Amino acid sequence: MATLILVRHGRSTANTEGVLAGRMPGVRLDERGAAQAAALPARLAGVPLAAAVSSPLQRCRETLRPLLDARPGLALHTEERISECDYGDWSGRKLAELSDEPLMEVVQQHPSAAAFPGGESMRAMQARAVDAVREWNARVTAEHGDDAVYVMCSHGDIIKSLVADALGMHLDLFQRISVDPCSLTAIRYTRLRPFLLRLGDTGDFASLAPRDKEQGAAHGKGAGRDGGAAEVGGGAGAP
Rank of each mutant, 00 (worst) to 15 (best):
D172R: 03
M104I: 14
D30R: 13
R65E: 15
Q58V: 05
A2W: 02
G88N: 11
A124M: 11
L162A: 03
E105V: 11
L171R: 00
A217I: 15
G22S: 14
A70I: 11
W136E: 06
G200E: 07
P41E: 07
L68C: 15
G227R: 07
T185S: 06
R71L: 15
G145Y: 03
D201P: 00
A129D: 01
A229I: 09
W136V: 05
A127N: 05
L95I: 08
E135D: 10
S154D: 12
S178H: 04
A132Y: 04
S178N: 04
T63Q: 14
A75Q: 15
R65W: 13
V133L: 12
M122H: 02
K213L: 10
G220E: 09
L4P: 00
V163F: 02
I5L: 06
K160L: 10
A114Y: 03
A238I: 06
S54T: 03
A45W: 09
G118K: 10
E120L: 12
I82E: 01
D146V: 09
K213Y: 03
A186D: 00
V106A: 01
G26Q: 12
Y87D: 09
S178Q: 04
G118T: 09
R193E: 00
E231C: 15
Q36W: 15
L44F: 11
D157E: 08
I159A: 08
G237P: 13
I82C: 04
A166T: 00
R8D: 05
R193A: 04
I5K: 01
A238Q: 10
C182M: 12
L197D: 04
M122R: 08
I158K: 04
Q109F: 04
R134K: 05
E84P: 05
S112T: 00
S178E: 06
E143P: 01
S178A: 06
S178M: 05
A229T: 07
G73P: 13
A164D: 04
L184D: 05
T16Y: 08
A50M: 08
R43C: 06
A124L: 10
A124T: 08
D180Q: 06
A51H: 02
A2P: 15
W136T: 06
I177C: 08
V47C: 08
M152V: 05
